[in-house]
Simulated scan of single mutants.
Amino acid sequence: MQKLRRNEMSEVICQLSRHLDFKIDLPGNVFKGYDFDFFFFERPLFDFSEVFFKLITENFRVFDKKMYVKFSGEELLEDSCLIVNKNDVNSTVEIVEKYFSDFMGGKVGYPIILFNAAFDWISFESSREEIGVIAVKKSTKKNEFMSGLESDFISIYSLLKMRSGSGAESLTARSFLRSYALAS
């Protein structure tokens, strides 16, 4: 695994900002455009090693693109952006979990964004919400990508079912549905 240098990070963040609005936080719709389908997950994703591992392996199986793990949103902090290559998936999970466990000694933080180099999918989690969002571009590969992950992510339809309750879970579901149901 590599760390992105500051000048490279600036370029990647510029490209990412075409798809993500850094001025908005969850539960608002942080994604730009209407070419995404949305799925949700309990955060922090890094606490669920097997889900994180599956996300990485499905990315390489379907898209064969390197992926990034970006801490601290758009901030260009040293060591805040990691590059994941398909040759080091197992060690990546361990390294990223270690980074996350103490946010590199407090040097990095939320939001945490995961995405592949072609922006076929982008995952966003914030410290403000218990749910994170993964946006997957509408494409012929979307179903193949999500088929390997669907048991670990929450669909819009599942959120619709969750909203009918009376607890905190239903309030969260309603908040996210207001931002994402019409956008997908």
Rank of each mutant, 00 (worst) to 15 (best):
M1L: 14
L4N: 11
L4S: 12
V12G: 03
V12A: 05
H19W: 09
I24G: 02
I24V: 14
L26G: 00
F31T: 06
K32M: 14
G33D: 08
D35F: 11
F39A: 10
F40H: 04
E42F: 14
R43C: 03
L45Q: 00
D47W: 11
E50I: 07
I56C: 06
T57G: 03
F63I: 13
F63R: 02
D64Q: 06
K66Q: 14
M67S: 08
V69K: 03
S72Y: 01
L82P: 14
V89T: 13
V96A: 11
V96D: 03
Y99W: 09
S101P: 03
S101D: 03
F103Q: 01
G105S: 01
K107T: 11
K107E: 05
K107P: 05
Y110W: 12
I112L: 05
L114Y: 10
F115P: 08
F115H: 09
N116F: 07
D120L: 01
D120T: 10
W121G: 07
S127Q: 09
R128W: 12
I131R: 02
G132D: 03
V133R: 02
V133D: 01
K137A: 01
K138R: 07
S139G: 04
K142R: 08
E144C: 07
E144N: 06
F145Y: 05
F145T: 09
G148Y: 01
I156K: 09
Y157R: 15
L159G: 11
L160V: 15
K161P: 11
A168G: 13
E169H: 09
E169P: 06
T172M: 07
L177D: 00
